[in-house]
Design a protein around this nucleic acid. Structure first.
Length: 455
RNA sequence: GUGGUUGUAGCUCAGUUGGUUAGAGCGCCAGAUUGUGGAUCUGGAGGUCGCCGGUUCGAACCCGGUCUUCCACCCCA
């Protein structure tokens, strides 16, 4: 009995037309990565759960796909453990591997494991799928590709500036108008400190992150709900009311945060970065956004996020600096900074904005009509010589009616059809038909490749 | 994980208050045209109405469950 085939929720098949467009995106991203000297690496789809767990916060742990142990995975689990129905205890016993959740943590693991072979500062890029057990929505998939560029082993903010340059170039090449938002985790820490709630930095920043969405009153509500007392909220008022240009905001912040060493350092870093950014040619708008909070679980300095300017959409690229990511794996004091391009969201944005260049829809340049046994040796020879000169060529596999073969060329959008039946072959010629114009010209077999290459 | 939404031919969708044999457009196949595609005309194939169960004399339509799609929250690429 046959069953209706299907694929898991949140995953997708990619047809040839989609792959051509996806490869266009990957190609541009890869080109710009290597243009700045980054080198490719790959890591396994699955990692040990000990590598993955605890790196993304409680929410992140829940979204990691776990892989059931092979064989009799229940053999070592005590019956009473099972009957207690304690999911986390049982899971630990029956699963020790998981699908990677992002590319940054596997990269950190890689750096620690290969530290002896690596020359620092290490610049790598990595384009691979990641998996999240999230509920799928538009622009949110359970399997999607990230394109990560990171440099590890350098504290310099020049790296941040360079990443913004890469972002600018990639999206320029893709014709997507973007806004780059930058923030600094240390400024957020300073803000939390002046509120007298340094340990609540996550709650405070997540609330402030919603400033644009729910307004300042909404943020006050949100802060209360998250258990921040009203005194602390009152001390945050000057921050919520900041206005003016980035420079003006930073000046004001310096006063507000005079008592916070971290905060002042964050401001200094921000000023330095803005200074570097001013020194390089950028097409895109870069703005400081104090409400930007992401990846709080490991970012320690600069935070970067990119949004499409012409479309309300989730972020299509994001990243930041992490001072101690490798510390968890036993290599402390190595700072890294990187960003991740979300290829699937970029695809969705480009599709909606109609930004993909016209595709031929076919990689084939020539179809040779199959006339049957008699002509076959000559036709195969023609196919060989066309391919030899770099022309993508197909020979129709069945000697069926010409109507069918021409329909095939039409449907595949193959631009030229070579007709070489007994008549043509007797004269040492082939008829070349231009499928767009309908024009047909007799060409000698020896001149065929150069004739097609010229047209 | 919480709340909501969607599912009918390969695709996009109709389908009356539950009532005989579930339709259209596009696509597909065949012919008009035994060595010529896109246009036109003629004919044809294709559906367990997502799946399982229930209510009913009778279910594409009502109810429950489940899967899927999309959306909001959460979080994020």
């Amino acid at each position: 009995m046959s069953q209706k085939p299907s694929i898991p929720k949140g995953t997708r098949d990619f047809s040839p037309a989609e792959m051509l467009r996806r490869n266009h995106i990957f190609g541009i991203i890869r080109k710009n990565f290597s243009l700045c000297g980054y080198l490719p690496i790959e890591t396994p789809a699955m990692e040990n759960l000990s590598t993955l767990l605890g790196k993304y916060g409680e929410e992140g742990d829940r979204l990691i796909f776990r892989i059931l142990n092979s064989g009799n995975f229940l053999a070592d689990v005590a019956p009473e453990t099972l009957s207690r129905a304690d999911t986390s205890t049982v899971t630990q016993k029956i699963s020790e591997k998981g699908l990677r959740y992002d590319l940054t943590v596997p990269f950190a693991r890689y750096v620690v494991q290969h530290r002896d072979e690596i020359t620092f500062p290490f610049r790598r890029y990595q384009i691979q799928p990641v998996w999240r057990a999230d509920k799928p929505q538009k622009g949110r998939y359970r399997e999607f590709f990230q394109c990560d560029v990171d440099v590890i082993g350098s504290d310099s903010l020049l790296n941040e500036a360079e990443l913004v340059q890469i972002i600018d170039r990639v999206f320029k090449d893709l014709s997507i108008n973007i806004t780059v938002k930058i923030n600094n985790r240390k400024i957020l820490a300073g803000i939390a400190a002046i509120a007298g709630a340094a340990d609540r930095i996550t709650d405070i920043t997540v609330a402030i992150d919603k400033l644009e969405k729910i307004g300042s009153d909404g943020v006050r509500q949100e802060l209360l709900q998250r258990g921040i007392d009203s005194e602390a909220i009152a001390r945050l008022e000057p921050v919520l009311g900041l206005s003016g240009s980035s420079v003006e905001k930073l000046l004001e912040l310096k006063n507000i945060m005079a008592a916070s060493a971290v905060g002042l350092q964050g401001i200094a870093e921000m000023e330095e970065l803005l200074g570097y950014l001013a020194l390089q040619p950028l097409r895109c708008a870069v703005e400081m956004d104090l409400s930007l909070a992401r990846g709080l679980n490991y970012y320690t300095g600069t935070i970067i996020e990119v949004k499409a300017a012409d479309l309300p959409f989730g972020s299509i690229c994001g990243g930041g600096r992490y001072d101690d990511l490798t510390g968890i794996f036993g290599l402390p004091g190595v700072s890294g900074v990187g960003v991740s391009f979300g290829a699937d969201r970029i695809y969705d944005v480009m599709l909606q904005l109609n930004l993909f260049p016209e595709q031929t829809g076919s990689s084939t340049g020539v179809l040779i009509i199959n006339f049957g046994k008699e002509e076959l040796p000559a036709l195969m020879k023609i196919a060989g010589s066309l391919r030899e000169s770099g022309i993508a060529t197909e020979l129709y596999p069945e000697p069926v009616r010409l109507r069918k073969q021409f329909s095939y060329a039409d449907a595949r959008m193959i631009p030229y059809v070579v007709i070489a039946g007994s008549n043509e072959l007797a004269a040492g010629q082939a008829t070349v038909k231009n499928m767009k114009t309908g024009e047909q010209i007799a060409v000698s077999l020896s001149a065929l490749p150069s004739f097609i290459r010229k047209s």
